[in-house]
Structures are given as structure tokens and as C-alpha cells.
Simulated scan of single mutants.
Amino acid sequence: MDVNAKFRDPREHINEEPRNDLGDLLVGFFGMTGFMTVVFFGMVIIKFIMSA
């Protein structure tokens, strides 16, 4: 009995894109830190302007 079954090895991961996980983590972390720093100083400046 000859079965012509075609299968793919699940270890191939053919649908995955090659990614740099550490780079993505660092970009996200420092990007969010930079954004929150800008927001913080923006709020400090707004508070200073409103209290003057």
C-alpha cells in the first residue's frame, strides 16, 4: 500500500519572519521610556505655566 501523503516538518516554521526579538524589545522599551519622559516634562511645563 503506497500512500502519497505530503507533509511538512513543523520545525520548518515557514510562516515565520526572521525577527530580532532583543532589538524589538529594546526599541519598544527605550521608545516608551522616551515618550513618557517627553510627556512628563510636557506636564511639568504646563503645570508651571498654569501656576504662574
Rank of each mutant, 00 (worst) to 15 (best):
1 M>H: 13
1 M>R: 12
1 M>L: 14
2 D>W: 06
2 D>P: 13
2 D>R: 15
2 D>V: 11
3 V>K: 12
3 V>M: 10
3 V>I: 14
4 N>Y: 05
4 N>Q: 06
5 A>R: 15
6 K>V: 11
6 K>A: 09
7 F>T: 10
7 F>Q: 12
7 F>I: 07
8 R>K: 13
8 R>Q: 10
9 D>C: 04
9 D>V: 01
9 D>S: 05
9 D>N: 14
12 E>Y: 01
12 E>W: 02
13 H>L: 10
13 H>T: 04
13 H>C: 04
14 I>Y: 02
15 N>G: 10
17 E>D: 12
17 E>I: 07
17 E>Q: 08
18 P>A: 10
18 P>R: 11
18 P>G: 03
18 P>D: 11
18 P>W: 12
19 R>F: 07
20 N>A: 01
22 L>M: 11
22 L>S: 09
22 L>C: 03
23 G>S: 03
24 D>I: 03
24 D>L: 10
25 L>P: 00
26 L>H: 06
26 L>R: 10
26 L>E: 12
27 V>W: 12
29 F>I: 14
30 F>A: 04
31 G>M: 09
32 M>W: 13
32 M>G: 02
32 M>Q: 08
33 T>G: 06
33 T>Y: 15
34 G>A: 12
35 F>L: 15
35 F>G: 15
35 F>P: 00
36 M>N: 11
37 T>A: 15
37 T>E: 03
38 V>A: 15
38 V>I: 13
38 V>P: 01
38 V>N: 01
39 V>Q: 07
39 V>W: 12
40 F>Q: 05
41 F>H: 04
41 F>N: 07
42 G>M: 07
42 G>K: 12
42 G>V: 05
43 M>A: 15
44 V>W: 03
45 I>W: 02
47 K>S: 03
49 I>V: 05
49 I>S: 00
49 I>Y: 08
49 I>T: 00
49 I>W: 08
51 S>Y: 06
51 S>L: 00
51 S>N: 12
52 A>S: 05
52 A>W: 06
52 A>Q: 04
52 A>T: 06
